[in-house]
């Protein structure tokens, strides 16, 4: 009987741990305006990679805003302070998500910016062709020219293959289009996603292994803690590589991993980039969260093109700069697409 009692007392003493998880792993930081500001500021201080690039003295941000935060600071006041900070960073990958709204800096795109999308599609592109959820493909009115619009590179990796399998449909598309004179790939409205998906598509146009960008990461708390530059390459992959003329259409709304795609394609000899300069934000962003439930995103890396030019805040310059104006749009003219078709038609 004594043994029995002892057994249960041991069991009960272990049960004690069940309710003590906070004691063991530590409790949450307090949800106060000061605490939220401190975490927000410190996260940027630790992880944000582009202060120097964007000429920001982050310590001065603390000096300026910290005294304004008191225990009585309201959510609205805190939101305004965070918004000012986010706008001041001028990085499209820095975003604050809160119940009061999302705050982010956009590249200088006018409200009316027709260059970001296809205008009067029926005039240039045949309809009714088979579709894929991420790669929409059909032929131009000239059936010798293929047209693929990629609206996103979003998509989670599956297992360890890393590529979202929907993007592998590019193999089927290209195998059907071997006899095409050329292909136009439209990423004008593509705001990015997973860089691996972008690379997967670009690989199908590669004639050989080519470095297309360099990245370095903020990898320590010190202001100068960066990894060495690491190159990224594309190389021929898939059942068939399309080595005939290709035009990639871009705009200021071509962002993030879509810009990686443009950089990868720009290095290929048969590819011409047509349109506007891209947004200029690659940055390898991460998400963080605060005890008050707000979330933010920040850039942890810096990207340069194959020639070593920093792309952050600058963007990728097109080989053939063209804009579709509001007047063009009103008249049903897609100036950028027209230029792309012209380049394919005139190619040898």
């Amino acid at each position: 009987m004594n043994n029995m009692k002892r057994s249960f007392s041991i069991l009960i003493s272990f049960l004690f741990f069940y309710g003590c998880d906070e004691m063991i792993v530590g409790s949450d930081p307090t949800n106060t305006p000061e605490s939220n500001f401190e975490i927000f500021w410190k996260d940027f201080d630790r992880y944000y990679a582009q202060f120097s690039l964007r000429h920001i003295n982050w310590d001065s941000v603390y000096t300026l805003y910290r005294p304004r935060i008191t225990p009585t600071t309201s959510d609205g006041q805190l939101f305004n302070i965070f918004s000012n900070i986010v706008y001041g960073i001028n990085d499209m990958h820095v975003t604050l998500y809160s119940p009061m709204g999302d705050v982010y800096w956009e590249p200088l795109i006018p409200a009316s910016y027709p260059s970001r999308r296809i205008i009067n599609a029926g005039k240039y592109v045949r309809t009714g062709a088979p579709q894929n959820s991420v790669l929409e493909y059909r032929t131009c009115q000239d059936p010798a020219i293929g047209y693929i619009i990629i609206r996103t590179f979003e998509g989670q990796s599956e297992g360890l293959s890393m590529t979202d399998s929907r993007y592998l449909a590019i193999d089927d598309i290209l195998s059907q289009w071997k006899n095409m004179k050329g292909i136009i790939i439209d990423v004008r409205g593509n705001s990015g996603g997973n860089g691996i998906n972008a690379e997967t598509v670009a690989d199908r146009f590669a004639d050989q292994s080519r470095v297309y960008l360099y990245q370095r990461q903020k990898n320590g708390p010190g202001k100068d803690n960066f990894s060495s530059w690491k190159s990224m390459s594309i190389e021929p992959k898939g059942s068939y590589q399309f080595l005939k003329p290709v035009v990639v259409l871009t705009s200021r709304a071509t962002m993030s991993s879509a810009e990686m795609f443009v950089m990868a394609m720009q290095n290929l000899p048969q590819v011409t980039i047509v349109g506007d300069t891209t947004a200029g934000g690659i940055g390898n962003p991460i998400f963080r969260e605060l005890p008050n439930g707000w979330t933010y995103r920040l850039s942890t890396g810096i990207t340069a093109d194959a020639q070593g030019r920093i792309m952050e805040g600058v963007g990728v310059f097109p080989d053939v700069p063209v804009l579709t104006t509001s007047a063009d749009s009103a008249n049903g003219i897609d100036r950028i697409l027209e230029k792309g078709i012209e380049i394919i038609k005139n190619s040898k």
């Binding site: 630790r46 992880y47 360890l160 890393m162 990461q217 890396g301």
Partner: peptide, 20 residues
């Protein structure tokens, strides 16, 4: 690891090769 994206242990991993 330093953050969700960065670790000197897997910064140099080649995604085209056997990741495991």
């Amino acid at each position: 690891r330093y953050n969700a994206n960065v670790s000197e242990k897997f910064d140099d991993i080649d995604l085209e090769k056997n990741i495991l």
